[in-house]
């Protein structure tokens, strides 16, 4: 069950990214009575019909599947708001709009499990897909103009986006850093730590190229 991802390929698997998103709180409206649930992850409830309540996404999905509640979609997941975001994303080539860190995963889980609770579901879904595509394209383009070799700020980039570009960016920045190091440091490096690094049994880069 607790499968591990190869730390060299991608740090977190898509399932693990989704796992983290499932802890985000969402609003639901229960249609049954239930005593408070005292979970390890926190206390939720009590549940009273027609009284909205905030619960983690995984719990909301579990209740929804059994027909015990309806979702209140988060405010950002509306046609109006998404249309605005999409326009703003298209307008600026360098900045990203503020969206929840796990917006892709949250939207996806809601589309899969709560389609009848989202007004204009098809419109909303296609907007989210457009936003995702525009952002990914922008992110790829922006990778070409990375500045700085020790710290690069990435504002408003989401969990899935970080995970996608991580392997590439990590290797690129490692290479920048290596070539940018001051001479003295490079000398010291050759003497003291180059050999151990050669002996490191991590996969060699040329072998990993496809």
């Amino acid at each position: 069950m607790a499968g591990q991802t190869d730390p060299h390929i991608s740090l977190f698997s898509p399932q693990e990214v989704e796992f983290m998103a499932e802890d985000e709180l969402v609003q639901i409206v229960p249609n049954m009575n239930m005593e408070p649930l005292n979970f390890i992850s926190g206390d939720f409830g009590r549940f009273v019909p027609q009284i909205p309540i905030e619960v983690p996404l995984w719990l909301a999905v579990a209740l929804k599947r059994r027909g015990k509640c309806t979702f209140r979609p988060p405010g950002w997941l509306s046609v109006d708001n998404l249309t605005q975001i999409l326009e703003a994303e298209r307008e600026s080539q360098s900045t990203f709009q503020a969206l929840p860190f796990s917006y892709v995963e949250i939207a996806r889980l809601l589309f899969d499990h709560a389609r009848d609770d989202i007004p204009d579901m098809y419109m909303v879904r296609s907007l989210v897909e457009d936003i995702r595509d525009v952002r990914l394209h922008k992110l790829e383009t922006n990778l070409g103009s990375f500045q700085g070799t020790s710290a690069v700020k990435i504002s408003n980039v989401s969990a899935m986006e970080v995970n996608l570009v991580r392997p590439f960016v990590r290797r690129a920045l490692e290479a920048f850093y290596k070539h940018d190091k001051p001479e003295a440091d490079a000398d010291r490096d050759t003497r003291s730590s180059r050999q151990p690094r050669e002996a490191n049994n991590e996969p060699r880069r040329p072998l990993r190229q496809r």
Binding site: I154, V162, R166, V169, R170, L173, E174, Y177, K178, S192, Q195, P196, R197, E198, A199, N200, N201, E202
Partner: peptide, 22 residues
């Protein structure tokens, strides 16, 4: 060690601390 003349333990894989993280 690769051989007795090595000054450091050069056959011991070490974590690569100059790598980049998010």
């Amino acid at each position: 060690k690769q051989s007795l003349i090595s000054e450091v333990d050069d056959m011991v894989p070490q974590p690569h601390l100059d790598t980049f993280v998010v």
